[in-house]
Simulated assay, not measured.
Amino acid sequence: MKKKKKQLLFIFLISFSLLGQSQEIEKKNAFAISIGSPGLGLEYARKVSPKLNAKVVWQTFKLEDFEKEDLEIKDDVVDLLATIESSIIDLGIEYLPFKNSSFKLTTGLGLLSKVNANALITYTEDVKYGDITITKENIGEINADVTWSGVAPYLGVGFGRPVPKKRFGFGVEFGTYFTSSPDVELTATNLLSPTSNQKENLKEALDTFKFIPRIQIRLAYKF
């Protein structure tokens, strides 16, 4: 009887040990939601090594029909109607250089499927030149459309492990996309029609806008 008890105890201890080992298997995946300058994001991350993680992020944002009235441009007062939207897919790698710190360096490629800004400018009121009055309808309107597209590398720094140590983890990241010059479309109507000839000047002015900020706050769930 004692021998059987010892056997049962041995089997129990072996089973408990194996169960403990199975529970200690490291979870290397995480799902996260984020919000920031690229918009609302959904993320999947995979731990490759103790210091290296890979991730895929889809981010989207849309601000439609944003109105700004009585905007002063030089000596003119105009109304602005703007729409901004973006859709970006990130393929990235995050490196944690310090063992006991969540500080990280991030790099990767952003697939800019659609990053667009559209602005419609109209005069707020009629314009007078001496005794002559030109109605705002006859003055016309200006429509500017700016689009970034293609593949944009990005770099950044932040805090927060892509795959957190505990079940949930919080993180923040600061960086930028490095883009090419945007495509520009400029149209104008009525008396403002000659303004459309300034398309190249506007494009040259936007050549400096080759950096799109990438600021994110994220909440991750490990599984």
Rank of each mutant, 00 (worst) to 15 (best):
F98L: 15
F98A: 12
K99L: 13
K99D: 13
K99T: 15
K99A: 14
N100R: 10
N100H: 10
N100E: 12
S102V: 09
S102H: 10
S102D: 14
F103K: 08
K104A: 06
K104I: 02
L105P: 03
L105N: 04
T106R: 09
T106F: 03
T107F: 15
G108Q: 06
G108M: 08
G108I: 05
L109M: 11
L109D: 01
L109S: 03
G110S: 14
G110N: 11
G110H: 04
L111M: 15
L111E: 06
L112N: 01
L112R: 02
L112V: 06
S113W: 12
S113L: 15
K114C: 02
K114Y: 00
V115Q: 01
V115R: 02
V115M: 07
N116F: 09
A117D: 05
N118W: 00
A119S: 14
A119I: 15
A119M: 14
L120Q: 13
L120K: 15
T122R: 06
T122I: 00
Y123R: 05
Y123D: 02
T124N: 12
E125F: 10
E125Y: 12
E125T: 11
D126V: 13
D126F: 12
V127H: 07
K128T: 14
K128M: 11
K128I: 11
Y129H: 13
Y129F: 15
Y129E: 12
D131T: 15
I132Y: 09
I132F: 07
T133N: 06
T133P: 00
T135P: 05
K136C: 03
K136H: 10
K136G: 02
K136D: 07
E137W: 04
E137V: 07
N138Q: 12
I139W: 01
I139K: 02
I139G: 00
I139Q: 01
G140S: 07
E141S: 14
E141M: 08
E141Q: 13
I142H: 03
I142L: 10
N143M: 01
N143R: 07
D145N: 13
D145A: 09
V146I: 14
T147P: 02
W148H: 10
W148D: 04
S149K: 15
S149F: 10
G150I: 03
G150E: 03
V151N: 11
V151H: 09
A152G: 05
A152C: 10
P153E: 09
Y154E: 07
Y154R: 04
Y154S: 03
L155H: 02
L155Y: 04
G156P: 00
V157F: 15
V157W: 11
V157R: 11
G158I: 04
G158A: 06
G158N: 00
